[in-house]
Design a protein around this nucleic acid. Sequence first.
DNA 1: TAACTTAATAAAGTCACTGGAAAAAGTAAG
DNA 2: CTTACTTTTTCCAGTGACTTTATTAAGTTA
Lengths: 399, 399
Amino acid sequence: MKKTGGLKLMQEINQYIILKTIRERGPISRSEIAKQNKLSPTTVTSAVNELLEEGMVTVGGVGESSGGRKPVYLQFAPDSKFILGVSITNSSIIIGKLNMEADVKDKEVYADDFQSHPDVIGYTLDRIGDYLDSCEDLSLCLGVSIITPGIIDAKKGIIRNNAKMHLENIALKEMVEERFRLKAWIDNDANSIALAENKYGHYGAKRNLIYIQMGDGIGSGIVIEDQIFRGSHGGAGEFGHITIDNNGILCECGNRGCLENYVNWPSIQESIKGHLEKGTPTRMMDGHQKLEEVSQGDFLKALQDEDELALSVIEETIEYMANGLVTLVNLFNPEVILIGWGPITSDSYFINRLREKVKELAFDIFIDGLEIQATTLGGDFQLKGAASVALEEIFEVPL
Amino acid sequence: MKKTGGLKLMQEINQYIILKTIRERGPISRSEIAKQNKLSPTTVTSAVNELLEEGMVTVGGVGESSGGRKPVYLQFAPDSKFILGVSITNSSIIIGKLNMEADVKDKEVYADDFQSHPDVIGYTLDRIGDYLDSCEDLSLCLGVSIITPGIIDAKKGIIRNNAKMHLENIALKEMVEERFRLKAWIDNDANSIALAENKYGHYGAKRNLIYIQMGDGIGSGIVIEDQIFRGSHGGAGEFGHITIDNNGILCECGNRGCLENYVNWPSIQESIKGHLEKGTPTRMMDGHQKLEEVSQGDFLKALQDEDELALSVIEETIEYMANGLVTLVNLFNPEVILIGWGPITSDSYFINRLREKVKELAFDIFIDGLEIQATTLGGDFQLKGAASVALEEIFEVPL
DNA sequence: TAACTTAATAAAGTCACTGGAAAAAGTAAG
DNA sequence: CTTACTTTTTCCAGTGACTTTATTAAGTTA
């Protein structure tokens, strides 16, 4: 409890309720808002006047009468303000402008090998500066929200650890706030994207959701009761390092049999090599001389074309992933697990087979009402993730 | 958000803040409460008067003056009301009276084999009835809080599934409320005990805590941000069924290599048998003819005496448990893991060795600030668990 | 056009909070 | 032992956001 009870708090609470009603159920008339929330019409009118003045809400036409004065419809004005979303990874920096519904209005992508860049943070700050200079009205900017992999202390706004980019204890929130005089947020990428799925994705009705990011490594973001679950040090959800075989491969984390070592891209490459040597037929090498030339994208494409070798390779991956997911399901009992891996879709062979496998292995009682699907945010998932962290706080319940 | 802003809510919020201050920092004077919470002295006086009338707070003497009127100390009156705590397991039913600080004032234990009892629920309700009949003033009873293993829908108050006691979809909350005209709560036992550790245990300052119950099976309760984490179906925390070896023993849950099969009492018995045949010296069999006569208590005692065979057996268990705990640490990033297994203490060989092992295997960043200890609630942990679920709601922040 | 509906605004009244003054109860020093 | 100063607690008037009860605005229906 941050605040004490007072008239100011009262008003804040009611204004929050009213704005929420307009956001979720708008266009809606004043009297309908009053009825739905059991508030007096007067209270609604005065709160709405303030919201209209701020520009957060606009009048959206007049409705049909059913025997009396026509209702004036109010609607949320998501474009009246904007958020600067930023995504930093070892291969790209994305900066974009998003409205208050996490729609991307404009973006700039800087692709490079930032893993060996001498000063990623300084570079990023400069690019943010460039972008802000090109914006007309900075008073409409609600703040800068940055997401990046690694262990992040979101509360204090510090990057605690990012091994790949060699970052440690960087007070990025403070740096941004002092340099640009704008509010700033920083959070882990997978966590933020999970929150975006929960708030703006297809399975938004589900309060407990896990997002799994496959690719070079494997990461996960966990949303519990509509909130990011960060653990005590902001390091919760290290799904890549759960044990699936206590006699397995020694991992650089010190443990044995970590999931990551069985399902990441290098291990898939290894498996492709094995199958090539065994002579499994494939069209994946068409146009390529060496295995190294085959990219993750090529593999995913071959998978979609149901290439025999790709299917054999993926079978092992599915086996391991299913094992990991069962552990996740047993511990978190989520409603949805969303998997992001390049262009993979919910009706792809990979997801279908994975779903089957998990249903086979997990408790029936957990399987009922559990969905395993592909991500639903589309191409701008990083920026949407960044924005949703900021929006979460901006539209947070006052207390 | 359940309520709208209004004068009533304002008062409730302030009264909550004031009661909380008295509970946590009492004995304390009115003016000190006002200062600490930035409330006006008037507001504090009027709220305190109400609390005094209700009996929740009492005057606890007068303090020393530092040059003015002496402060009147107010203190929480935990004994002014009581909660009926109930624990149902397959081997015992415990019914007890607890005050508002989860201290057990009186209890009744019914030990029997309830696994094969024709009607555990009916029997329990009758015993609750007997107990309530013996209470003088039922108007002081805040309600009945029941805990039991299995998958529980705590919100609706339904036992969804308890395989051992053959219970399925039993609306126990409703049954209790209608029969005794008292408020009722039902929750999973491990979850409740975890909450009790968080609220009334030694590590109460830690907001993220995991409690692990060892014995016949293995269960866990998870507290995140001072609240029980239940997952979407009330089935979160099935720690016993996480995979530690994907080629391991086939479990009755359908998966392979579930932790439970490696660390429960039957598997320890099996291991003892193996070591006996190998001729490992032991004093554990003193006074026993057959292995079946050696109870879990005997084994734990031998362990405490550092019996060679017991130590050999426990080494394997530690190995598996450490593996499981690392997965837990990687996913939840908790501040404390508390282990309950009979009389085992924090400085026992078992916990010491387990702690070492986990530190060896998990990420350094998660190990800093992670404690692995034995439970701290003492003998009445079940009843304290039950009470803490009820108290959580009774003293909940109003909204 | 009159009678009824429904939406939005205005005016009056309510109530818990705040701030300042007063009362209660002490301490400290001449 | 009286006076001056402190600290705690209570009393009282004033504030402001809410609710309730008109009133005004704008329609529909017969």
